[in-house]
């Protein structure tokens, strides 16, 4: 039977974490939802979850945890789990796949098993990173301001 490492998200804001969402899901709710996802994928969760703080992403220790727990896959509560600052950790996502793990994303309802699925995901991650990087840049804001004043 497959063994999945659940990765929970510790939200920065427990109230209104995003528009239209009144409160962030608790760890218990996240774990229960990931348990159902694991069952759907023909496996179980390992007992101790990994917790990622929103905006800080997951660290290198995730790889040793996966190895020591003899996992065959990893289930992320949401893509937000791998965001560090404004950027989504594309290299981490790629490494998880390259190390042979099945990668599931609960909120986004995606599972990455093949190279083509990984590439499709990386393209979207890179687009989002480019947009966020550009929009956070003071020099870009200046360019936009100049264009609008012309």
């Amino acid at each position: 039977m497959k063994r999945f490492l659940p990765v929970l998200l510790e939200y920065e804001n427990r109230v209104n974490p995003e528009p239209g969402v009144p409160r962030a899901p608790t760890f218990g709710e996240q774990a229960a939802a990931l348990e159902r996802m694991a069952q759907r994928l023909g496996g179980v969760l390992v007992t101790v979850p990994y917790v990622a703080r929103q905006g800080q992403g997951v660290g290198n220790d995730i790889h040793s945890t996966l190895e020591s727990e003899e996992c065959s896959g990893i289930l992320l509560f949401a893509m937000e789990v791998i965001r560090r600052g404004t950027q989504l950790d594309t290299k981490r996502m790629a490494r998880l796949h390259q190390d042979g793990y099945e990668v599931g994303l609960l909120i986004e309802d995606k599972v990455i098993r093949s190279l083509s699925e990984l590439e499709e995901m990386l393209d979207f991650l890179n687009v989002i990173n480019a947009v966020r990087n550009r929009d956070a840049s003071p020099s870009w804001a200046e360019v936009v301001a100049i264009q609008h004043s012309l």
Partner: peptide, 11 residues
């Protein structure tokens, strides 16, 4: 490449 808004783009 348009600005994103506040909703989770992946969802």
């Amino acid at each position: 490449f348009a600005p994103l808004g506040m909703k989770d783009p992946f969802r």
